[in-house]
Amino acid sequence: MDFFAHQAQARQHTTVLVVYFVIAIVCIIASVYIASAMIFHATQTQAPAGAVWTGFVLWDPQLFLYVVIGTLSVVLAGGLYKTLALSKGGSAVAEALGGRLLDIDSVNPDERKLRNVVEEMAIAAGVPMPKIYVLDNDAGINAFAAGHAPQDAAIGITGGGMRLLDRDELQGVIGHEFSHLLNGDMRINIRIMGVLFGIVCLAVIGRLLLYSRGGGGRGRNPMMFIGLALIVIGALGIFFGRLIQAALSRQRELLADASAVQFTRNPAGLSRALQKIGRVGSQIGSVHAAEANHMFFENGLSKPFIGWMATHPPLEQRIRAIDPSWTGTFDDTGATNNSDPSMKPNQEPL
């Protein structure tokens, strides 16, 4: 009903996320500074008198300035580069995943139904009509939204999703994707991936430092230790960054489910679609699936992550959130394809 409230919520999440990331970057800068101060201190005062860490003079304004400028510029430059690389329009992403642009005048009944449902959801969500792509090679049920502005947005669905879902179920799935478009989830994700890449750059520079001076000096070169420190700090930063990214992604999925119900006013449709995924699976074959996993309707990778790293909440949790009376089995009655239980896919962990 009131999707302005949802948008406000999305902005609030974004703020929290930005705060977390700023904290993460501050922590990284602080660690780099402490590490380099200790290393310089140790290597410079090591030779003469007894190797007492005299008073621990860690405050060195000049070094601090260098570290802040150096670290920030590496992270920001890396982040900017990656953000620009990722900021391709929705069509580019959809085509990279192997999508085929849907012919608007198609007479194929499934394709017409898909186009109509997307139009209906565009009206319900109050969002301009996106381009529609079909991933013909994927037989599982999945869908994605891509593009960071309404003008170049694209919505894609797997061939399996288009054929196996009925009208109501398709509405739920497409409504979910419209929520991602409406709430600007793509923009948020691109920025997080940019910062994560910046942190990766930091670790790469650390590796360069470690190896480039390896032959010349004899272990006393502080650069080598700094390189080592950067690798460790970078690894930790990436780990925690991924955790924040995954936690946020799960929140956005739940928000999108709730918005889909809000658009369609039909929780049963979305619930049945999720149960069908529980039976048929949601795998995506494209080699680009891993980097785009967060934008799919349901986890598109073969092996589920450990819970904290998962980009999607467990199917069970998602169904219960929409339909508290759900019995807990994926084989609902009247299903057209109750073929073989051996096809039962990976169930989400937890």
């Binding site: 017409r112 139009e119 009206i123």
Partner: peptide
């Protein structure tokens, strides 16, 4: 008839969704 009824079903839904927005 099949394609007409699909179009009609979809239009019906679109009327429904835009009616929701109007009533809000």
């Amino acid at each position: 008839m099949l394609s007409l009824s699909e179009e009609l079903a979809s239009t019906e839904n679109k009327v429904g969704f835009s009616r929701q927005a109007y009533n809000d």
